[in-house]
């Protein structure tokens, strides 16, 4: 299935991209993160254990167990700092 990935702020800079279309078999957020970490480099560092980041699925905050479906918009970003 295909996911529309979006990245923001520091993660966008580290990954060198703000969005991508990702072909994956991951069925949950946790599985997706495992797959992204396998890319190595900044992916492994930024999404590594002990790092704080947020994942949103279709613009709602998601947890590791959140299910993913074909066509979902999945965002990964640092803790927010607005206001």
């Amino acid at each position: 299935m295909k996911l529309n990935m979006v990245y923001f702020a520091r993660l966008k800079d580290s990954f060198g991209t703000g969005q991508e279309s990702l072909e994956t078999d991951a069925t949950s957020v946790a599985e997706l993160l495992v797959e992204l970490r396998l890319r190595g480099g900044s992916w492994a560092t930024e999404l590594g254990h002990g790092k704080t980041f947020r994942v949103a699925c279709n613009q709602e905050l998601a947890g590791p167990d959140s299910a993913l479906r074909d066509g979902d918009e999945v965002a990964i970003f640092p803790p927010v700092t607005g206001g």
Binding site: A56, V80, T81, G83
Partner: peptide, 9 residues
């Protein structure tokens, strides 16, 4: 807003 709205400075 400061903890839940997706803004980054």
């Amino acid at each position: 807003l400061k903890t839940a709205a997706p803004f980054w400075k």
